[in-house]
């Protein structure tokens, strides 16, 4: 894996004012790897996810994507972001556009794809997430789970090298979580590189290659799911797992 790293973070530090939210983070995500980031709230896992496409700038350290360092704000950064899809906790579908237009917009604007081709591709992707019948609806007319699946289709429309998931199921009703996780499992099986911040331990166990456990801005453990869930090394992780797994 070492020779084929897609995302590399080296000694990354980030502060919100005096709060040191990311402390000397080192993380490598190989091509085709699924890395699940878990940890208590406030541990910096969402921030970690958002620094990878520079929605959150960092104060020190380096982040490289496919061997290229993240550029500063500007066109170069936009080009790089196009190669890394992101799925948000609150879906963030464009409220004024139909489902189809949501998926087709970025390819048309960023890749200059023709409207017909972009919409054709959008319909295929909606088919893939099981929402082809809803193409002409507006986001507000869909359930949370459906909206999140559209958001995944929208991210896939740019044919990204990697996908970042920032708590994709945290805003969903329990019965809708599975439909989203199923789409994500499918992507994982197809070899998509994914960084997933989540509280879904079942997903972490079944789909992840590695589990990264964060607490207080540091990566505490970085291991395979079996190792992590059956024999956590740190007290912090033991404590966390005992709280969430026994209830």
């Amino acid at each position: 894996m070492a020779g084929d790293a897609l995302i590399e973070m080296r000694r990354v530090n980030k502060y919100y004012g005096k709060l040191h939210v990311l402390q000397d983070i080192d993380l490598t995500v190989g091509r085709g790897e699924v890395v699940v980031v878990i940890g208590p709230s406030g541990s910096g896992k969402s921030t970690l996810c958002r620094t990878i496409n520079r929605l959150e700038p960092i104060q020190s350290g380096t982040i490289t994507l496919d061997g290229r360092p993240l550029p500063e704000e500007g066109r170069e950064l936009a080009r790089l972001r196009a190669e890394v899809g992101m799925v948000f906790q609150s879906f963030n579908l464009f409220a004024h556009k139909t489902v189809l237009a949501n998926v087709a917009l970025a390819p048309m604007k960023v890749r200059k794809t023709h409207k017909e081709a972009a919409e054709q591709r959008a319909r295929e992707l909606l088919e893939r997430v099981g929402l082809a019948a809803h193409a002409d609806k507006y986001p507000a007319q869909l359930s949370g789970g459906q909206q999140q699946r559209v958001a995944i289709a929208r991210a896939l429309a740019m044919e990204p090298k990697a996908l970042l998931f920032d708590e994709p199921t945290s805003a969903l009703d329990p019965e809708m979580i599975n439909e989203v996780l199923e789409v994500m499992r499918q992507l994982a099986r197809e070899g998509m590189t994914m960084v997933v911040v989540t509280h879904e331990m079942g997903f972490a166990r079944s789909a992840a290659n590695r589990v990264v456990f964060m607490a207080d801005g540091c990566i505490v453990e970085d291991r395979t799911p079996e190792d992590f869930f059956t024999a956590p090394e740190s007290d912090r992780a033991k404590d966390f797992l005992s709280k969430i797994l026994k209830h």
């Binding site: 496409n53 929605l55 936009a78 080009r79 790089l80 972001r81 196009a82 190669e83 890394v84 899809g85 992101m86 948000f88 963030n92 579908l93 464009f94 409220a95 917009l105 970025a106 604007k109 960023v110 958001a151 929208r154 991210a155 740019m158």
Partner: peptide, 10 residues
Amino acid sequence: QGEAARSLGM
């Protein structure tokens, strides 16, 4: 909304 657009490379 803006974050989603930027994350898509716009």
